[in-house]
């Protein structure tokens, strides 16, 4: 076996220096823009389905809930709005990362000079952005159908954003942590079902075990924030607190996903 002399190695090193790594903002922006374009083309029909599903649930439950029961009506509207976010940010993102991992397609990103968590963040942000119109349409329809006051309807926007971050973090983590793409798909769908039931049904109507489970779903505080805003006077401190906690859970989820992405590439 032969080795190059040390002097020649250092010559080569001088001749070929490392190109700079792509910065966080540039990588994030490129991933976000690319994924948003991709999601717009490939997932638009699914957003339509997600919105239709949530509006369908609103209309279905309108048949059994009286508009005078504001607590239940607000919970249904808030839960249905967040369900659109869960459909895309949790379910589809878990599927997406599960599929990328199974096909070893994450190599594409790992062979580029970028911070890998920017891939998770950029993809999650694009999916979350994509859910906003559906979540807002559902909230508007819900307020109209259940006769709720529209004064604080704007709260649906920050709620959808925070839920998008929280559920995208969870969805990405599921897709990257589970050993098979099929399991990631099942987990994403079960997660979406949990968001549906635990979000739409008011906590007071849930059994104790479900109330405990509810505390572990990262979007539930944001659902509560929207429900509170829709049924009565706004509690700014409560709103900020609930959204901040939701956002923090999302940040933790995304950070964990970034580490899982690194592990998935190198395994």
């Amino acid at each position: 076996m032969t080795h190059l002399p040390d002097t020649e190695q250092s010559d080569i090193q001088r001749a070929t220096s490392l190109a700079p790594r792509t910065t966080w903002p540039a990588a994030l922006s490129a991933v976000y823009t690319g994924q948003l374009a991709r999601v717009r083309v490939a997932r638009a029909p699914l957003l339509f389905v997600a919105t239709l599903q949530s509006v369908g649930i609103l209309l279905l439950l309108r048949g059994v809930v009286h508009t005078s029961d504001r607590q239940t009506a607000a919970a249904i509207v808030a839960g249905s709005s967040v369900l659109v976010v869960a459909f895309v940010a949790l379910n589809l993102l878990a599927q997406r990362f599960g599929a990328l991992r199974a096909a070893r397609a994450l190599d594409y990103y790992a062979a580029l000079p970028i911070p890998l968590p920017a891939v998770v963040l950029g993809t999650a942000a694009s999916y979350a952005t994509f859910t906003l119109p559906g979540a807002l349409v559902t909230a508007v329809v819900g307020v109209a159908v259940y006769g709720l006051p529209a004064a604080h309807l704007w709260v649906a926007l920050p709620v959808a954003v925070c839920c998008g971050v929280a559920l995208a973090g969870l969805g990405a983590a599921l897709g990257l942590a589970l050993p098979r793409a099929e399991l990631a798909t099942v987990a994403g769908q079960l997660g979406m079902t949990a968001v549906l039931f635990l979000g739409v049904i008011p906590p007071s109507h849930l059994p104790v075990a479900a109330r405990v489970a509810r505390d572990f779903v990262p979007s539930m505080l944001a659902v509560d924030a929207l429900a509170h805003a829709l049924r009565g006077p706004l509690d700014p401190a409560g709103l900020v607190w609930r959204l901040a906690v939701t956002l923090a859970m999302g940040v933790v989820g995304l950070a964990v996903s970034g580490r899982l992405l690194r592990r998935a590439v190198h395994e």
């Binding site: 690319g34 083309v41 070893r104 190599d107």
Partner: peptide
């Protein structure tokens, strides 16, 4: 290993990451 992408371009076998772009 983080230095490698600063020196080389790699064409992998699977293109799922960019398939819908």
């Amino acid at each position: 290993p983080a230095g490698a992408p600063c020196l080389l371009a790699y064409l992998a076998q699977d293109e799922l990451a960019v398939r819908e772009l």
